[in-house]
Simulated assay, not measured.
Amino acid sequence: MAGSLTVRQGALAGHLTATAGFVDGLAFIHLGGYFVSFMSGNSTRAGADLATGDLLGWVKAMGLVLFFVVGVVASSLAVHMRASRSGRTPPYGPRSTAVWVSLILLLSAAVCASVPVLQIAVAPAIAASMGAVNGTFTRGGEVTVGLTYMTGTLVKMGQHLAHAVTGGNRTIWLRYLVLWCAIAVGAIAGAVAYQVLGLGALWIAVLLLLVPAVVLSLRGPRAAWSSQT
């Protein structure tokens, strides 16, 4: 959970969350009100579309949900296979493999966006990328920090804020607030970038993901933010 992250891990989580917000902000406008990282929103949208007879909208929303899950599966399998090859169980910490999988998928989306005949694959690739990045912080195969969805983060913030009011730790709630702010600010930046650059703004997101992918890989298993896969 975000409350247990080190300062460097928290900075990484904030960076990845802001990147997810950036991608979701630009994709939300491009897709006319559908999400590539917030699947609760797409699930609600799918239900509303079906109820109002918009079958195309239902297919779009459910397709994004499907590819998001595909990205989660791909990331999880990649992390598992790398751990199996190394012959060890990685300790808790950021997994570079998950970030690289997300980066490759997002790069694929950016490339497809520049080729008119391939643009139909852009949204599925972005959704898969956002699913994959959620595998960055895991323990025992379970996600410990959700990077692209903030409902649980806001609940945790509220709980820790209540603890602070009743005499508990007075600062942990701020870590959850920072994550929420990261995705909110990222979404604003992504929406603005899309209005200026269109889908070309995806290349900015690719660069934003490339930085942590490279840094995580270079720091190695003795990094201060612990070993990664």
Rank of each mutant, 00 (worst) to 15 (best):
V7D: 07
G10N: 09
A13K: 01
A13L: 07
A13H: 04
L16D: 02
A20Y: 01
F22Q: 09
A27M: 11
A27L: 13
H30P: 01
G33K: 04
S37I: 11
S40K: 14
G41D: 11
A46T: 10
A48F: 09
A51I: 05
G53A: 09
V59R: 15
V59L: 15
K60E: 12
G63M: 08
V65N: 12
V65I: 15
F67M: 08
G71T: 07
A74P: 03
S75P: 02
A78G: 03
M81T: 14
R82T: 12
A83N: 07
A83C: 15
A83P: 01
G87T: 12
P90I: 12
G93H: 02
R95F: 14
V101P: 02
S102K: 05
I104L: 14
L107E: 03
L107S: 10
L107Q: 01
A109D: 08
V111G: 05
P116C: 08
V117W: 11
V122E: 03
V122R: 03
P124S: 12
A125P: 00
A125S: 14
I126R: 00
A128K: 02
M130W: 03
M130K: 04
G131A: 04
N134M: 11
N134E: 08
F137C: 01
L147C: 08
L147T: 08
Y149H: 12
T153G: 06
L154N: 08
K156D: 12
K156S: 13
L161Y: 12
V165G: 06
T166P: 05
T166I: 10
G167K: 05
R170V: 04
T171K: 12
I172V: 15
L177Q: 04
V178P: 00
C181D: 06
A182D: 00
A187S: 15
A193G: 09
A193P: 14
L197V: 14
G198E: 00
G198Q: 02
G200M: 07
V206M: 03
P212T: 05
A213V: 14
V214Q: 06
L216Q: 00
R219Q: 05
G220S: 10
Q228Y: 15
